[in-house]
Design a protein around this nucleic acid. Structure first.
Lengths: 198, 198
DNA sequence: GTCTATAGAGAGATAGAC
DNA sequence: GTCTATCTCTCTATAGAC
């Protein structure tokens, strides 16, 4: 959305918005050209096809490293207080998923089938796995420091992340208000903590 | 897909498939006409627009009563054995969500924004609420019969349903194999049961 | 790198015959 | 209720001037 960016970046920015609003098929090259205030033909100077815009958009987002945005210093400092830690971790995750840009990317992943033509695309499953990997790392640390019970970190990750991410999806696709999230986090962490505390 | 059905039903059947594969924008009236082996103009004898086909499709699915398909007699018979009950309940849910027709409907809901133009449409949030309502009813019964701990049924439903439904989404949109579900159910119910048993 | 102009296909929808 | 024929608009993409 930044006018000073180069045209290629600008195209990717508006495509993210348009693809997330109207899906890949519903957003046209014409819409994209209008949004960057250029002609359709100019688009083809930067991308060889609409498909390529989509591919590069997915690539750009799937190759980020969001770890430091979730695993903040503030969070790491309280790892010895697991209940507080889980609250803050949940807040960091929800905050990340609720950001304008991330909501748009998640919408695109949800509207996209991995069906057909091999596994060339990044799917919502890959996306979730990135977060599960992060949380498995956390749980491994917590177990080795005996802050929580010894349990399967894959199961822990799934149980911890699923209610949070599903709530994020509902918020992104639906009309659910953001204030609901606060009590959801509180209830979820309370339930989870009761199951994992020593 | 049944040739003996009337044309209107036939249109709704193929539209479910096409909308789920290519989204609302990507599936054309022409595609639909081809799929029912009629001309485009014939479609307009049954629906006034493409938009109306979509609306009636959502309406048809959102006004079903799937309760008896989940809450089977076999399931109700073992309500006094909660752990077994939760396993079978999970299997019933996953089986329902994995059926051909349901996968297509869920895909359509996931590709659809509730954004803009009021709340006229049924969203994934409404869909999930239908299942949560069912499971809240179950937990209320279990608590009143003292089969499980006294806890907030809204929290219990969320914690019980979320990992299962999110796994269903991953299966529907991704490449995850169906066999993974069995161990997921086992792990999830074990985790859940440990938190709710008296 | 952006423009004008245009090709060629496909979109949603309607009129009117049968 | 289905057909043929057609309207009008939009789509992706390319050629060639500046």
């Amino acid at each position: 959305m930044n006018q000073s960016k180069n045209t290629k970046e600008h195209i990717l920015d508006v495509s993210l918005k348009l693809f997330s609003e109207k899906t890949y098929y519903g957003a046209s090259i014409r819409d994209i050209a209008k949004a960057i205030d250029k002609r359709e033909s100019s688009i083809y100077n930067h991308f060889k096809s609409k498909e390529e815009i989509f591919e590069q958009l997915i690539l750009k987002f799937s190759s980020r490293n969001f770890g430091p945005l979730i695993l903040t210093d503030q969070l790491i400092n309280i790892i010895s207080k697991p209940e507080k830690f889980f609250i803050l971790l949940s807040e960091n995750l929800i905050h990340f998923w609720n950001s304008e840009e991330e909501r748009m990317f998640i919408k695109i992943l949800l509207a996209k089938n991995s069906n057909g033509e091999s596994k060339k695309y990044y799917s919502i499953e890959n996306y979730l796995n990135d977060f599960k990997a992060l949380s498995e790392f956390i749980f491994r640390e917590m177990i080795s420091h005996k802050f929580i019970k010894k349990m399967d970190v894959v199961v822990l990750s799934q149980e911890f992340i699923s209610p949070l991410f599903l709530a994020a999806i509902e918020l992104i696709l639906g009309l659910k208000s953001e204030t609901i999230q606060k009590s959801l986090i509180k209830n979820h962490v309370e339930f989870f903590w009761n199951s994992v505390k020593k």
